[in-house]
Structure formats: structure tokens, C-alpha cells
């Protein structure tokens, strides 16, 4: 990005349309809506309500028990959702990749994504209410899994269906029965898909909001929700701190996933 910015600077007498010119709108957009907000969050985190430099916000966040509980809850819900998505998504993706009509069937799993997630979640809530299900942790996790399952299935399906059949044949040829073929070749060869799926489910779930609020009638509060609340209450400082904490979580988990992916899979296929 710095390159692009530097390129704008030299005064030019003649305006020439080069490939670089086409990147300007994007660079401008990035500056306005990605870089600037991040800077603002960083600045806000060190300011109190009277715009004085302070570290008070950190103290408030890290000493307040309730906010740490919310963070713990978020991570817990994220882990559970990711695990359930993996447990459901892997077999689904595996069988779809084996079927000749698999590509079409995958569409059915992706189809709900075309409906706005708020509408979907509200509809889910209506169904739960109609069925007299008590809203709580169970319904929240259900809503999460329902919303994020496609993000698990898609990368897994892509990876599984790109595994060359000859690897499976080679394993069979060397004496592996079908379960050994799965454990020794298909599973290790699909690690990159698993990593992608986990990243694509875990990171959004820990930062999500609205789903938990709607599907628990406001009983369960996740990190995303509480950030939203802090900003609603005008507590920009604490809200910013929480956003930074969230960002650190996302970056760390992304980093860890990449590490695992690199160690386990020499092919270097990643959907990220």
C-alpha cells in the first residue's frame, strides 16, 4: 500500500492511464474504510471521555469480571460451533465430493446464505418460539452452526474433491482397506481444507453479534454484542479496547492456523 501511496505523490505533468491507476479507487477506499477506522480505534483506546491521554480504559476492561466472562463465553461458543460444524461438515463434504452430482448438491447448502442472516436468524427464532423451545445457549449454538456451516462445507468440499483419485488408488494398491485409505491419505490430504474451514467458522463466530442476542432473548451476551453495547452507551474507549482484543484474537488464531497448515500440508493449498 505504501508503494501505491508513494506513487501518487510525484507531481506529474501528463496523466497517463497505466495499470496502477486502476488501483487508486481501491486504495482510497481502503484508506477511508479500513486504515482510518483502525487508527481511530487505536487512538480512542488511549483517550478518556474528555479526550485526555489515559490507560484507564485498559484497566476498566481487564479488571471488570463481567467483560472477561463475556470474552470467555464467546470463545467457548466459537469453539463449540466450530467443532459441531466440523463434525457435521466433514462427512457432508466427503460424501458430496464422492458423488458426481456433488457440485449441485453443495449449492443447496450454500443457498441459505443468499438470505440475509438477520432475516434467517429471526425466522429461526420464530420457529423455535412456535415449537416452544426455550431460548438459551442451545438455540444460540444452533443458530451459529446453521449460519456458519456453509463456510465449513465449501472449503472442505473444494479440497476433498481436488484430491487426485490416484492417491486413493495408490493406497489401495499398497494394501490399505477403505478405512485405512481414509485415515492415511484422504484425512491428511484434506488438512488444508479443515484449516480453512475452521478459520472461516471460528473467527466470525467469536466476533459475531445479533445471533446470540436474538436467539437467547438477550440472555446470552457475546463479545460482539458487548462491543456494540459499549459503543451504544458512548463508551468509545472501552469499546475500542475490546475491538483491539478481538483483533488480537483473530490475528493470533489466524497465525496459529497458518502454522498448523504449513506444518501439516506440504502442498500449500490454502483457501485464504
Amino acid at each position: 500500500m505504501t508503494n501505491a501511496v508513494a506513487a501518487v505523490r510525484p507531481a506529474r505533468k501528463k496523466f497517463k492511464i497505466t495499470k496502477r491507476v486502476f488501483s487508486y479507487p481501491y486504495v482510497l477506499f481502503m484508506l477511508l474504510f479500513v486504515v482510518l477506522p483502525l487508527v481511530m480505534i487505536l487512538v480512542n483506546a488511549f483517550l478518556d471521555s474528555d479526550n485526555n491521554l489515559t490507560l484507564e480504559n485498559f484497566k476498566i476492561f481487564f479488571t471488570e469480571k463481567s467483560s472477561l466472562i463475556v470474552l470467555g463465553n464467546s470463545v467457548f461458543v466459537g469453539l463449540v460451533t466450530t467443532l459441531i460444524c466440523l463434525l457435521i461438515g466433514y462427512p457432508v463434504a466427503y460424501f458430496l465430493s464422492k458423488m458426481s452430482s456433488g457440485k449441485v448438491l453443495v449449492l443447496f447448502f450454500v443457498l441459505p446464505m443468499w438470505v440475509n442472516f438477520l432475516i434467517r436468524t429471526l425466522a429461526t427464532k420464530a420457529i423455535f418460539l412456535a415449537m416452544d423451545v426455550t431460548l438459551g445457549m442451545g438455540t444460540v449454538v444452533f443458530g451459529m452452526v446453521y449460519n456458519y456451516l456453509p463456510f465449513m462445507i465449501l472449503p472442505l468440499h473444494t479440497t476433498l474433491s481436488s484430491i487426485d483419485r490416484s492417491y486413493i488408488e495408490a493406497a489401495q494398491d499398497l494394501g490399505a482397506d477403505s478405512s485405512t485409505v481414509f485415515l492415511k491419505t484422504i484425512l491428511p490430504l484434506s488438512v488444508s481444507g479443515i484449516i480453512s474451514g475452521i478459520t472461516m467458522v471460528f473467527i466470525p463466530t467469536i466476533s459475531t453479534f445479533a445471533i446470540s442476542q436474538l436467539l437467547s432473548n438477550g440472555k446470552i451476551f457475546l463479545f460482539g454484542d458487548s462491543i456494540q453495547m459499549k459503543f451504544d452507551q458512548g463508551l468509545y474507549g472501552v469499546g475500542s479496547i475490546m475491538s483491539i482484543v478481538m483483533l488480537v484474537f483473530v490475528l493470533v488464531s489466524n497465525f496459529l492456523m497458518n502454522r498448523v497448515g504449513r506444518n501439516n500440508n506440504n502442498m500449500g493449498r490454502s483457501l485464504w
Binding site: S166, Y167, E169, A170, L189, N265
Partner: peptide, 9 residues
Amino acid sequence: FQRYALFPH
């Protein structure tokens, strides 16, 4: 095999 099919992992 024709294209060896060595396990990449």
C-alpha cells in the same frame, strides 16, 4: 502409476 501418485503429505 503413470503420474507416480506419491503421497504429497
